[in-house]
Design a protein around this nucleic acid. Structure first.
Lengths: 138, 138
DNA sequence: GTAGATGCAAACTTTTTGCAGACTG
DNA sequence: CAGTCTGCAAAAAGTTTGCATCTAC
């Protein structure tokens, strides 16, 4: 059985994620952020920890449809996040949780009418949030 | 204005896509397929043509959330495909078009209740199709 | 003490780019 | 002929891996 040690790198990464719950971040963004002079965390280490946290269900991993790097979202112990879809604004990057009764309707419709079993943690809806839309409209 | 020439590479790529409308294919898959002895198409050429076809709206480009390569789906002149979501089976890779009245409900709910303007061609729902599900259940 | 974690450098994969030559209209 | 397209090789960019060393428990 694989034990998990409580290390400085992992603590700092977790702390970063908990302070940025509304964002999806990439490995290099975390790397850039964790660059205090005598406390740098190696990029390979970051990738290894991201993988483990994703396996543990603490993070959700997505491939950004625009960019070519993977991004990670913190969901912590919160099991709910595995049962609803997430929307991301393509302009500001903000994540919106589709956490309402309509979520159930979507799942059911897909299953009943299209025989499709939706897997929420793999899917992400892209578009534009209200604020960015107003801003764009001027 | 950028003119588009009718070349052998592009013809062969288009032909491949039209014969595989139900699939999402990657650059290397097309490359492997177009390997007739004296008629190979260079991978760089394939990437350049994929980019152009995507700009023209003939293809839709996605990043597979599982793999690390981009995949492309043929939609041709069919404008409808830009107005509904697509579901992909994570097991067999088949693409299902969410082409029904419920699509409108989804868009409206996201806009009205979450102020989110959905962009269908960027989004994709992952899960499992009916056949694969039955097969998995045994 | 031992399993697990880290840093470093090198390897790997996918995608992009520069350039010279070939093709399309 | 001019503007595009192509192949080739080299370069990016993101991610993974091998190995020696270090750390947590």
């Amino acid at each position: 059985m694989q034990r998990i040690y409580r290390t400085k790198s992992r603590e700092r990464m977790l702390q970063f994620f908990q302070n940025h719950k509304e964002k999806m971040v990439s490995a290099s963004e975390i790397h850039d952020f964790l660059q205090e002079k005598d406390d740098k965390v190696n990029l390979a280490t970051i990738y290894r920890n991201l993988d483990k946290m994703t396996e543990d269900g603490v993070l959700i991993k997505y491939k950004d449809s625009q960019e070519d790097k993977a991004v990670y979202q913190y969901v912590g112990e919160d099991e709910k996040c595995h049962e609803h879809l997430h929307m991301q604004c393509m302009k500001c990057g903000k994540v919106i949780h589709l956490e309402c009764n309509f979520m159930k309707e979507i799942s059911e419709h897909l299953l009943v009418h299209h025989r499709f079993t939706l897997q929420c943690t793999k899917s992400i809806l892209y578009g534009m949030c209200g604020e960015c839309r107003e801003e764009a409209a001027g």
